[in-house]
Simulated assay, not measured.
Amino acid sequence: MTTHVTDCVGAVITDEAGRLLLIKRGHEPGKGLWSIPGGRVEAGESDAAALVREIREETGLAVVPGRLIGRVRRPAGAAGGEFDIRDYAAEVTGGMLVPGDDADDAMWAAPADLDGLPLADGLLAALRSWGVVGGAG
């Protein structure tokens, strides 16, 4: 049986204070959980174009995509299949942080605060394994 795979992108964005940009997911999978902003790559769209679009839609920020930081596969929830998520560094070039689209909230979180937040499954482990944030305690 072939598993349906949906291409997705995410953005790892930090500010000058070293805080990580997070959005609170407004829809399943992971409704109510904090995650990095991102979403599905549309047909004919490059990862870079999808990243720019998704960040603008979810946060109101304009970004320039950078290097690939890491890649994960996650279950696609009730729809079945898997999300193939490619997470890229990105730099904010403009806009104002305002949650939109399918984000219920958005914030800058200090790395020390991540352990106390309800995060999307596997997010903190992935960020730690990629060296984006340090280990616990």
Rank of each mutant, 00 (worst) to 15 (best):
H4S: 14
R56W: 04
A110F: 15
R128Y: 07
E16S: 13
H27V: 13
L33I: 11
I69W: 01
A125H: 05
R40Y: 00
L22T: 06
D121E: 00
D115N: 08
V52Q: 01
P111K: 14
A90V: 10
V12Q: 07
L119C: 11
A106M: 05
A78W: 15
G60E: 02
G94H: 01
H4T: 08
L97F: 06
W130F: 07
L61D: 03
W130Y: 02
C8A: 08
L117C: 07
D15V: 06
L124I: 00
W108N: 11
E91Q: 07
R19M: 14
G39V: 04
T14G: 12
G137N: 02
R53E: 05
M107H: 07
V92T: 09
P37H: 07
L127A: 06
A112H: 12
V98R: 13
L97H: 11
C8H: 03
A126H: 01
T14C: 14
D7M: 00
G116Q: 03
I13F: 06
A78G: 11
K24P: 05
M107D: 07
G94C: 03
G100C: 11
I55A: 02
H4E: 09
R73H: 12
L127Q: 03
P118Q: 13
R71T: 13
P37V: 10
D115I: 12
P75L: 12
V92W: 09
V5I: 15
L51N: 00
D102N: 09
G38E: 06
A90D: 09
V133K: 09
V92D: 04
R71C: 10
T2W: 01
G60S: 05
P75K: 01
A109Q: 05
A78P: 04
L127C: 02
V12C: 11
A125Y: 04
A126L: 04
R74K: 10
A90K: 11
G39N: 04
P75S: 14
L21C: 09
M107W: 09
T6M: 15
C8N: 01
V72W: 03
R86Q: 06
G100S: 11
L119I: 11
G60I: 04
P65W: 04
A11T: 00
R73A: 12
R25W: 11
G122H: 08
G135V: 01
D115E: 15
V9P: 02
G137C: 09
R86A: 05
G116P: 03
A49R: 02
D121N: 05
P118M: 11
D7N: 02
D121I: 06
A49C: 13
